[in-house]
Structures are given as C-alpha cells and as structure tokens.
C-alpha cells in the first residue's frame, strides 16, 4: 500500500505536466515551475542545514571503529578512530566518497546448534555506491545544457561514459548503471521482507521519482527525440536568469523537467537530506581526542551534587570508628 501510494503520487507527477504542457502555457512549465522548485530547494536546504548547524553538540561522542591513539608503540587507526581534525577529514572523506561504514556490512544467519554465522554482505554497498556515482555523473553531464561552449570536463566525462559504445546515439554507461542500481535498491525494498517491513512510502517515493527522471531522460535520448537546440536555449536562459521558451521542444521534455523540479522541491523535506546530514553526524565528524582536549557543552547544566562534606557529616561516626581519616573531627552544629 505504501508502495502503491508512492506509485500513485508519481503517476500524478507525470500526468500533470503531460496534460498541462499539451494544453499550452509553456512558460509556466518551462520557467515558473523550475524556478519555484529551485527556490524551494535553496531556501529549504539552507534553512535545514543552518538549523542543524546551529544546534549545540553538548558531548563529543565519536564511534570509535579502530584502535585509539594512546601509547606510542601501539599502532593507532588514524582513519577509523581519528584523534586530529585531519584524521576526521579523512574519515569523513571515506564515509562520503566510498561509504566506508556500509562497506562493513555483514549478514547474520542462524543455523542449527544454535550457531550464528556472519557473512560479508556488500550488495547494498555496491548498489548504493553505483547509484550515487551514476547520479552524480549524470548531474554533471547536464552542464552541457547550461554552459556554452560545453566545458571540456563535460566532454571528457561524456567520452568516458560512452566508452562502451552500442549503436547510435551513443549509449551512456551511467544511464544503464543508474537504472540497474535503482532497480536493485527498489527490488531489495520490495522483496526482502525485513526491508519491506521497515519501509515507508517516503522510502519508495524518491527511488521511483529518480527512476522516472532517468527513464524520461533515456526516452528522450533514444526514442522520443526532443529539440536539443531548443532545450539548450531554455536551460541556458534559466541558468543566466534570462529565461526564454523556444517553441516545439516536446512534451517528454516537460515531463522530465517537472519530475526534476518535483525532486528538488521535495528534497529539503525528505530523507534525501542525508546528503547534508552525514556531515553533521556527531559520531563521525568529531575526533576521538576526548581525554586530550576538553569539549565544551554550551548548556552545561548546574546540577545538585552530593558533596564530600555532606557525606562526611552523614557517615562521620562510622568513619571514625573505622579509623578512616576525617576532614572535620566533629560535626558542625549548624549542619546537624
């Protein structure tokens, strides 16, 4: 039902621009919608990140996943348990660029005995990494529409991407990778009973949306050819804040554009914010130098403690009988 709901929303997001664009109003679909979406994204994303960043980090709580730095002769793990800022940068880089923690993934099986067996399980890591990098490359590839002349790095990237050339136009490897990776992530969510059990509609929806974006992009490239010159004019117009709407670009483009707009407008309010949140995770972005340098808690509360004086006052007689040292031989009259 949650999957169905996501599918329904997606269908609406496809039908609306398809119908809308066929009824005309190209400036609305080509200019107003993308600008609105971008505005929502920028404001939403920034305010969300600022809100997080403003929150205090009362305690330094890194998860240590390697040997601490202690005695000189004990080999320390500077990346899995960094003790310096530089080490933290390294740890974060591994986390963000290579999904270090996900790479650790294991799978447990209970056998007769009972016997628990742990196996390596890298599929989630591989699928996630493939998906994110394909997405990144496709995103960067789109700069050919925004900038004239096409930047050299985009050309280089595209050449590399079409290395495995199949027919014309050139098949881009990333197109195949992203569809495969999303399909894997989606099927995993649907077919693995455990993952299906924990999934919300908001977990299916982004995958479906991105899959639809990729699909419409691929359809435009291979099947429903759109006027690329017109697309570039429109994109460059948007990019340079001098929007124009060329005639006859084709409905498929407007669907693609509307889905992208939906994604970026949805982004700040969704789990997709893990993109920024991972940088702010206190178990990863802090050095394990707790005993070396004091960490300050801005709201460190005043609390009621039990002082030694109160303790000695309560137990003076038994302490004296046990010949334990005392600070005061007799209880102060006022304390009694």
């Amino acid at each position: 039902m949650k999957f169905g709901f996501s599918l329904l929303i997606l269908a609406l997001l496809i039908v609306i621009p398809a119908l809308g664009a066929s009824l005309g109003g190209a400036p609305f679909w080509g200019i107003v919608i993308p600008y609105c979406a971008l505005l929502i994204f920028l404001v939403g994303f920034t305010s969300r990140v600022l809100k997080w960043a403003k929150l205090p980090v009362p305690f330094r709580i890194p998860t240590s996943t390697g040997q601490q730095k202690s005695l000189d002769w004990i080999q320390h793990s500077p990346l899995d348990n960094p003790s310096t800022g530089l080490g933290v940068v390294g740890r974060m880089a591994l986390e963000v660029l290579l999904f270090r923690s996900l790479f650790r993934n294991t799978k447990v099986e209970l056998k007769e005995g009972p016997k628990l067996v742990y196996g390596s399980s890298k599929w989630l890591w591989a699928g996630a990494l493939a998906f994110h990098y394909a997405f990144l490359i496709i995103f960067l590839r789109h700069f050919k529409y925004f900038v004239e002349p096409t930047p050299f790095w985009v050309v280089g990237m595209q050449n590399l991407d079409s290395f495995f050339q199949v027919g014309l136009p050139m098949l881009l490897a990333t197109d195949a990778v992203i569809v495969a990776a999303i399909s894997f992530l989606l099927l995993r969510r649907l077919l693995d009973a455990r993952i299906r059990y924990i999934s919300n509609a908001s977990d299916y929806f982004p995958l479906l949306l991105i899959l639809a974006i990729a699909a419409t992009g691929i359809l435009m490239r291979y099947f429903f050819k759109v006027d690329l010159v017109g697309v570039k004019k429109l994109a460059m117009g948007l990019f340079s804040l001098k929007p124009v709407v060329p005639e006859g670009i084709g409905a498929m483009f407007y669907i693609h554009m509307f889905l992208v707009s939906s994604l970026i407008a949805y982004f700040p309010f969704s789990k997709l914010m893990h993109l920024a949140g991972v940088f702010l995770s206190p178990t990863r972005n802090l050095a394990n130098n707790n005993r070396m340098r004091r960490h300050l808690n801005p709201w460190n509360p005043q609390v009621k403690v039990h002082t030694y004086e109160e303790y000695e006052d309560e137990f003076r007689d038994v302490m004296k009988a046990a010949e334990l040292p005392l600070d005061k031989e007799k209880q102060c009259p006022k304390a009694s």
């Binding site: 809100k51 205090p56 009362p58 693995d192 993952i195 789990k271 949140g277 178990t283």
Partner: peptide, 29 residues
C-alpha cells in the same frame, strides 16, 4: 532535547531505512 542535542535532531531527520543496522543488534539476533 531537539534544541539541545544536534545528535537527536539529525538522527531523527536523516535515516533512509537502508536496513544495514537491522541484523547488527544482539537483541534482534
């Protein structure tokens, strides 16, 4: 607490329910 602990707020917001943690808990196992 959402105002006092960045950990709490961020951890409320960013989980993607990938399930990597699922079979890591001894109580679950």
């Amino acid at each position: 607490r959402l105002m006092r602990f960045r950990s709490f707020k961020v951890f409320m917001d960013i989980c993607v329910r990938c399930g990597a943690c699922a079979d890591k808990c001894h109580f679950y196992i």
